[in-house]
Amino acid sequence: MKKLLAGFVLLFGTLFLPQLVIAAADLEVNTPAISAIKGSMQARHGQLAAHYASGAVGLTKDGMVAVRDANSVPLKDRGALNSAVAAENADRAKLYKEIATANGHPEWQPEIQSTFASRWIDKAQSGWWVQGAGGWVQK
């Protein structure tokens, strides 16, 4: 009887094994929605790259961007800088959400965002400003 029960347990165990295998696979990031957001961010990068390099805009620790010190930007261009930062953050928020939903796990959004946050900062070029635990630092 006990053996039978143990057999059941084993059977149950193997039934749930495939779920763990799925979790180890690649994340889906090729949906049209993700491509569209990526395209929009790509187009904006030409404008933002100069601001990353000058230190006007920095990469925040939560996977977003922020105006850090706009004093090097002429006054008349600061409105456009602000709009670009706001639009970039809207796209980033949407990107994290979209990746989570595309993989069938909307609840993963915070983890995806924090994964991105550290990868953006790791991949930032030297000279760019990134937000550490203690505030802004230059790479």
């Binding site: 006007a56 105006v67 850090r68 010190d69 706009a70 004093n71 930007v73 006054l75 600061r78 602000n82």
Partner: peptide, 11 residues
């Protein structure tokens, strides 16, 4: 004048 982030400034 300008604040630290340069979001309120005049020249």
């Amino acid at each position: 004048f300008s604040d630290a982030a340069g979001l309120h400034a005049a020249e």
